[in-house]
Design a protein around this nucleic acid. Structure first.
Lengths: 333, 333
DNA sequence: ATCGCCTTTGCAAGCGTGTGCAAATGCTGC
DNA sequence: GCAGCATTTGCACACGCTTGCAAAGGCGAT
């Protein structure tokens, strides 16, 4: 109906009686412009409703301000928490987040990265899956920065942020022992993600060091329903475990609910449970789950800091610590 | 270290021995290009790792392909579910989602919309808060489309997607009555969002029609902790309610946990509870919450359909239905 | 008055793309 | 061979912005 055109710097310049460069410089921090002209430009800009076109700016500056977040299963508690934190920190750093949802299909992450390339994203942050090496090479070659969160890959030039998953496994073993547990089990999904497998190995190794065997069960994807199935499998064994480490809080929630409902197990008296992630639900009164906290804020801070720092190839690996969160799903020693 | 420049259509053209226009047309669906040149262009493009620069394309076409999602508290189950669905549908429609996280501060949504303007987003989808009218006017005037989800505002030219919140309120009253409940209560947050208030009014009105009074309690923001507080307030009344409608599933979860733990109330025998949203946790065995399902998929479908349709000013209001989901937090009649 | 210096300003080139227009090409039917 | 037509191609301009460069202006010291 009315005009369908955004007002351009030209019109602002005309109205303010200055050159178009002056307008541009007014909106470029650190550019040389006198207070007087800046004032007049601002006035005209406000009156006309002018806003810098970041598409055009990105074209010139070779820097779009866009950061691409690549993630699957956004609706999952841990993922959405991390996503939320990342977008906030990015915004505070003057960047803007472009969200690309991937699935489990082959090439899904690759397609996402190509989208990032098309929009000339300054960086991509990969929270799920693993891209093909040829694509990441393309990104890096073109100056796009790459952050891999909890993806254990040996991409050179990318920032890798990882947790001490392996250590968590051993820490929880001592907690179980102190609680008097002797028949340990590990409940994992079949996803085979490096971080999940590291937790598993850490747990098994630490138990072995103390002379204990661990029953390992794996099923499905990393969600509530898989936790239910895992509970049925583990709790119907002749030697019923009395200390179960679930690779994920979601698994633990499903596990606990099924243990109580279908097997009338009392937690923590008859069975101790631990998880990983410290999702919001872990603190809910129905679970009171002992777990390890994903340092969501630290992850986001590190990622954004590295992006801000420009192409400094010094550190490209950050190891963060997952804090132990003690709750009542494990008996006090 | 290596070249920091993306390859442009120029270089592809040169390598393929054609004009730059040919390259452009090859990547423009429906453009006139012979199969032979298309083949040669594609070959050269693949070899060089060429990807159309969407910033430049957006500049020319006056259509960026970007849709801005404006939302607060992304990590919340319902929000993240809707977000996930929206990004997926947008991707399928060839758009890309730009995520802007808002908070409760004044002008937060306005700042988000300005970000959308700067990136010349084709549309903005607002899931939280309410922008200032002057900003939305600016958006609409510039041809940016606007979708308001569950925000009851009278913005002209924007698509408003709403639920039958009011009707849900009355439907749940009959369910409570059939279960034998006589002392009804409504647990709300203090947010005062139109959709929350509509549920409240619908519940109260329907109860009144059947000759029943409703105790209303409001506290805090719409989360688990608020549900806990509301439980303490409602369950310490001398006339303890036996049927509580929580404005939100999150509230209901907190309510149920506290009712059981701190008041030893047995659900549903001594107390029936219902919620709204049908978040994932509502189906968890610890809650088995009767609730109304946010038609997340329908919402996303409608939004994207409307965006695809171009500027058709015929329908700008969609009323969707929240399906009743029966679970065991209410006694069978 | 002249010079040197610093700040501010305008010009114009360029970023990578889409597209109208006219020229070129190929094909068909006489 | 030629007119008539449809298809394909290239040229050149436009999109809105940044920025190097040189010119202009202000100002104090000589």
């Amino acid at each position: 109906m009315t005009a369908k055109f955004y007002v351009s710097a030209n019109e602002v310049a005309e109205r303010a009686g200055v050159s178009r460069s002056a307008v541009s410089r007014t909106f470029t921090p650190g550019a040389s412009v006198s207070p007087e002209t800046r004032r007049r430009v601002m006035e005209a800009a406000d009156a006309l409703g002018y806003h810098v076109n970041h598409l055009a700016r990105g074209l010139m500056r070779n820097e779009s301000g866009i950061v691409c977040l690549i993630v699957s299963e956004v609706a999952t508690p841990y993922r959405s928490a991390l996503l939320s934190m990342l977008t906030q920190k990015l915004q505070n750093a003057g960047k803007v987040a472009m969200l690309v949802n991937t699935d489990r299909s082959d090439g899904s992450v690759d397609r996402a990265l190509k989208q990032a390339i098309r929009y000339r994203a300054d960086a991509s942050i990969i929270m799920s899956g693993l891209p093909d090496k040829s694509i990441t090479q393309l990104c890096l070659k073109n100056g796009q920065r790459l952050v891999l969160i909890n993806r254990d890959d040996d991409q050179v030039g990318a920032l890798r942020i990882n947790l001490d998953d392996y250590e968590a496994g051993s820490k929880i073993v001592t907690a179980f022992l102190r609680a008097g547990c002797r028949r340990l089990a590990f409940a994992n999904s079949e996803a085979g993600t490096p971080s999940l497998m590291a937790r598993e190995r850490g747990f098994i190794d630490a138990a072995k060091r103390l002379g204990l065997d661990v029953v390992v069960e794996r099923f499905g994807w990393t969600g509530y329903e898989a936790g239910q199935v895992l509970a049925r499998r583990l709790l119907t064994r002749e030697e019923r475990p009395d200390g179960v480490f679930c690779a994920t809080d979601l698994l633990a929630c499903g596990f606990m609910d099924t243990a109580r409902r279908e097997f009338s197990v009392v937690i923590p008296e008859q069975l101790c449970v631990a998880g990983f992630d410290n999702i919001e639900q872990a603190a809910w009164k129905s679970y009171e789950l002992t777990t390890f906290a994903q340092p969501v804020e630290d992850i986001a801070t590190e990622a954004v800091r590295w992006l801000d720092a420009g192409p400094s190839h010094d550190t490209n690996r950050v190891q963060l610590h997952a804090d132990f969160v003690w709750r009542s799903s494990i008996r006090a020693g």
